[in-house]
């Protein structure tokens, strides 16, 4: 599997295909039993999550997982935990609020008391706060209202336009394929198809299996 800088790459597949596991292996939550994960020339196989964050990879975990007892602002600050440049951090907080204006209104609200869509925004904002080179996103649209999905998709594209590489895992293959440049189709841990996202979207097998006809 290859992820080129500045692109959006998506992994699609059924439940249990190994999408989340792949992402968790990239950010060090799991350690792969075989194979190699390279990023900017660094081998990530045995690194701890906090070291991988330092290299510039941020992870938006499945199910959002904001820090529920912390405010929106504190959640964002945690995203910037390793950064020392206070001014740049402040600018990035403003940048996040530009992406997600609703968060600015709720800056002091405890993240655990927010709606699912807003929590997703907090989680994505938190990932942005580490000024990452690459963000891996696990099911950002999961459990959200359709309108919210579109909103999230728009923001993912925005983030990518600014030069951040994105690996996107999605149940919603339609959404994922229309966002992505490249796509990999996973089945029980193996890549069974790969290619340009636009082409895969037209592929009959993919249509049948993942796009509902």
């Amino acid at each position: 599997m290859d992820v080129e800088q500045g692109t959006i790459v998506t992994l699609i597949g059924n439940n249990g295909a190994g999408k989340t596991t792949t992402l968790r292996a990239i950010t060090g939550l799991n350690h792969p039993s075989s194979g190699e994960i390279l990023f900017d020339g660094h081998n990530l196989n045995k690194l701890a999550p906090e070291k991988i964050n330092r290299l510039g990879i941020a992870h938006v975990p499945e199910g959002r997982r904001v820090f529920p007892q912390m405010t929106v602002l504190e959640n964002l600050e945690m995203g910037a935990y390793l950064r020392k440049d206070k001014n740049a951090i402040r600018q990035d907080i403003d940048m996040v609020f530009n992406h997600f204006p609703v968060l600015k209104e709720r800056i002091k609200q405890l993240a655990g008391t927010m709606s699912g869509g807003q929590q997703q925004m907090v989680a994505m904002g938190r990932a942005l706060m580490s000024a990452p080179k690459m963000i891996v996103m696990d099911e950002p649209s999961h459990g959200l209202a359709p309108i919210m999905c579109l909103e999230i998709a728009r923001i993912i594209r925005e983030i990518n336009k600014k030069g951040t590489t994105i690996i996107l895992v999605e149940q919603n293959a339609m959404l994922a394929l229309s966002l992505a440049d490249r796509a990999y189709v996973l089945d029980t841990g193996n890549v069974i198809l790969e290619g340009d996202a636009k082409e895969l979207k037209e592929n009959d097998d993919v249509k049948k299996a993942y796009l509902g006809g």
Binding site: L29, P49, E50, N53, H59, P61, F67, P68, S130
Partner: peptide, 11 residues
């Protein structure tokens, strides 16, 4: 609150 996600933030 969430050690795993905390680790993902570089903590």
């Amino acid at each position: 609150q969430d050690p795993e996600v905390a680790a993902l933030q570089g903590i």
